[in-house]
Design a protein around this nucleic acid. Sequence first.
DNA 1: CAATATAAGTTTACAGGGTAAATTAAAGGA
DNA 2: TCCTTTAATTTACCCTGTAAACTTATATTG
Lengths: 204, 204
Amino acid sequence: MPRALSPAEVEAFRDRLCAAAERLFAEHGPQAVTMRQLAVALGVSPMTPYRYFRDKDDILAAVRASGFERFAIALEAAYRAADGPLERSLAVGRAYVGFALKNPDAYRLMFDLSQPNEADYPDLVAASRRARDIMAGQATGLVEAGLIEGDPVLVSHMLWAALHGGLVLQLAGKLSPAIDPSALRRGAFEAIIRGLAGRGAVLS
Amino acid sequence: MPRALSPAEVEAFRDRLCAAAERLFAEHGPQAVTMRQLAVALGVSPMTPYRYFRDKDDILAAVRASGFERFAIALEAAYRAADGPLERSLAVGRAYVGFALKNPDAYRLMFDLSQPNEADYPDLVAASRRARDIMAGQATGLVEAGLIEGDPVLVSHMLWAALHGGLVLQLAGKLSPAIDPSALRRGAFEAIIRGLAGRGAVLS
DNA sequence: CAATATAAGTTTACAGGGTAAATTAAAGGA
DNA sequence: TCCTTTAATTTACCCTGTAAACTTATATTG
C-alpha cells in the first residue's frame, strides 16, 4: 500500500521488528536473529526491513537502545522512590541487579563487547547516557553526603564496575561456586556500597 | 606427506593456527577471522584446519585457552614475586590490569559473552581455572591476614568483579570521561583493594 | 621391489547468511 | 486518465561454515 507511511507507522514497524529480534534472541540464541528469520517473524519479505533500518547492525543498535531505555527507566524509578543518599544508592543497585537478572539476554546484548562501537548510533548513545547519568547522580549523592570521599565520577565508575563485573562474570559462568541469583538480588553487591560507604572510604 | 604426523607436529600446526587467528582478530576485527582467511594465512586449503580442530568454535576455544594460559602465567608471576598478603593482592591486581590493557583483543575474546559455553572445552576450563585459582589465593591471603573479613570465595568474586567490570566498561567505551589507561595501570583499581582492606571491611 | 592400505590434504558442492539491483504494485496529483 | 512516487518483493551475488568425494604420497606388507 504505497504512498505516505506516517512517522507513526514507521516507528510502529521499527518497534515490531525490535520486539521480534528480542524474542528470537531470547528464545533461540544470538545466531537465530537473522534478517530472513526476522522477516518471517513479521510476515514480510527478507528485504523489507532495509526500508526501516540501514543494515543489521542498525537493527541490533536499536534493540540495544531500547534495552538501555527500559534499563534507565528502572533505575530512575528506584532513584526517585528512595530518599536519602545511601538509600538511593542501595535502591539503584538493587534495581540494576534486578534488571540484569530479569532480562539477561537484553543485558548481555547491551554490553556485548563484540558489538560495533555505539558512537555511530545516536539513539543508543542517548539511551546509554541516560542510564549512566543515574549512576553518576547516585554516586554524587554519596560523595556530597560525605559517605564516600573522592571524585564523584570515579566513585560512580567504581560502583558501576563492581555491579557490572559481578553480573557479567556470573552470566558468563566464570564464578565458581556460582552465586545464587536470589542472593545477588537480595544484595550481595550491597556489601560493596555499604563497605565503601560504611565509613571513610577514600577513592582517588 | 601422509602417514604419521607426530603429536609435536599436530601441536605445532594448532599453535600456528591459533597465532594466525589472534593476529587476524587484532588486526582486522572479529568478523575477519574466518576459516578461509585462516587458511590463506597458513598457506593451506580451506578444509585443512578441520583435520586439527572439530570446527570453528573449537578454534576460538583454543585461542581463548591460550589467552587464559598467558593470563594465568602473568598472574602467577606477580603472585610469587610479591611478599605479604596485601602486596600480593596489589601485585596481582596490577598484573591483571596490565595484561588486559596490553592484550585488549585477547581479553575481550576471553570474556566475550556471546562465545559458546566453555564447559565443552576441557583445555579452556583448565586454563580458566588456573587464573581463577590465583584470584582465590590472593583473596584468601587478605582474609587470613585479617585485612578483610568474610568468605574468601566471596571476597575473591568481589575483587575480580571490580577489576573485570572496570576493564570491560572501559574497553566498551561506556565510561565517560574515559579513564586514562596509564592511570588504570598505575592503580586506580588499587583504590578498591586498599579501600576494602584499608580497615575492617566486612563482606558477607 | 611391487602392491596395497592409510592418512594428509585438496576440490567440489551445498545450505544459509547479508544485501545490491532490478522489478512489481499501489496510491495521489495532474 | 495517466504519470509519478514509493512500499514491497523478487532475483541475484558473494561470502560463510562445513560435508563428501577425490587426490596424493608415504609405510607397511606380500
